[in-house]
Amino acid sequence: MSIPFTHTHGDRRYSGRSNLDRVERADGAPLVIALHGGTYTSEYFDIPGYSLLDRATERGIPVIALDRPNYVDSSPLESEDSIILANAAVLGDAIGSIWEQYGEASPGIVLLGHSIGGAVATAIAASAPSWPLLGLATSGCLVRVPQESRGAWESLPPIPMIDLPVPMKDQVMFGPAGTFADDMPAASHPSNTLVPKVELLDITGGWIGRRAEMCAQVDVPVYHRQGEFDALWVTDQGEVEQYRAGFTAAPTVDIELQLGSGHCIDFHSPSAEFQQGQLDFAREVAKAAVA
C-alpha cells in the first residue's frame, strides 16, 4: 500500500499517493508519474491485489500517482478551451518541480496515464517538457468513440461535477463476465469519485480532433495497451493500427490490444501481465537513457 503524497508548486496544490517511503530504488530506475482517468482518484493505482504501486515497489521503481486538478485535494482548474490541455500545462509544470525534489539518482521520468489521464500524459509529452522525459505509457484511449457517447455525456445534468451511478459506471468500465475476478468491480469502488463534466465532453470531442496532432509531437518511446472489450472507444485492430500510426516522431511504438480486458485493464484478469509490461517498459527506456 502507498502513503499520501502532497506537493505544492506556485499557488497550486496536488494530492496523491506514492511508494517513496518503502521502495528500495533499483540502480537506474526511473521515476514514474501516474495520472488517473476520469471518475477515479489516484487510488486507482493502489487497489489491493491490483496495485501498480505494490508491483513497482517489488521492482525497485519509485512511483508518484497524482490526483489531477479538480480531484480530491488537488487545486481546482477551469478552462475556456480544452480542460485536457489545461491539465497538461499545469501538471507539466508541477512534474518539473517534483523532478527537482524527488528525481535523485533516477535518469528521468516515465509518464503513465489511464484514459483521460492518458490523453493528459500524451499532451504533456507532446509539449517537449524541460525535465527529462524517458517514455510514455498509456491505456484506455484510442481514435474514435461510439457515436452515442458524446450525446450521453451532453445529456448529463448541467452541473460542473458529475457523480456517475455505480452500476452505470461498472457497465462501461468493465468487460464481459469472465474477464475479471469475483472481487471486481466492487474492489475498485474505493477509487470512484466525481468527474468534471467538461472532461467527459473534451475527451469525446476536442481531444479526438487534436489527437493526431498531439501524438505526432511525441518524440519519446511509446507503450500503449487497449482493452479488447473497451466500451468507451471504438476498439478493434484497425483502430489500434491507426492510433499507432499517429506517433510519427516516437523512436519506438509498442501498441497492442490487451486481450480479455475491458476499459480499466488494471482491474481485469490480465492486470499483473499488463502492469508488469508497463514497468518493463519503464526500466527499458531508463536503461537506454544511460547506455
Rank of each mutant, 00 (worst) to 15 (best):
S75N: 09
E228M: 12
V166L: 15
M161S: 09
T252P: 00
I124V: 14
S74G: 05
M173F: 15
A245M: 03
L200A: 01
S51Y: 08
H7Q: 05
D54S: 13
W99Q: 05
P4C: 03
P221E: 12
S139Y: 00
Y223C: 01
P69Y: 05
D93C: 03
L31N: 12
Y40W: 15
G103S: 08
S18C: 14
D254E: 15
Q101P: 00
A288H: 11
F229I: 05
E154Q: 15
A123T: 13
M1L: 13
L194F: 00
A26F: 02
A231D: 00
I64K: 11
A250T: 10
G246N: 12
G16R: 10
S261F: 08
T41G: 13
Q278Y: 00
E104F: 08
D230N: 13
G135A: 09
P196F: 07
W153L: 04
P167H: 11
A216F: 09
Q258L: 10
E43Y: 11
E104S: 14
A29Y: 06
S82Y: 05
A186D: 13
L136S: 08
G151R: 08
I84N: 02
A126G: 12
R225H: 01
T138G: 01
D67C: 05
H36I: 06
L200S: 04
F5T: 07
F45G: 03
I208A: 07
V145T: 15
R25A: 12
D46G: 11
G277S: 12
G206V: 03
G135W: 06
L259S: 12
P251D: 06
G205M: 10
I203L: 12
D73V: 05
E228A: 14
N70F: 06
V285S: 08
S42C: 15
M173D: 15
V195L: 10
R17Y: 02
V195F: 05
R22G: 13
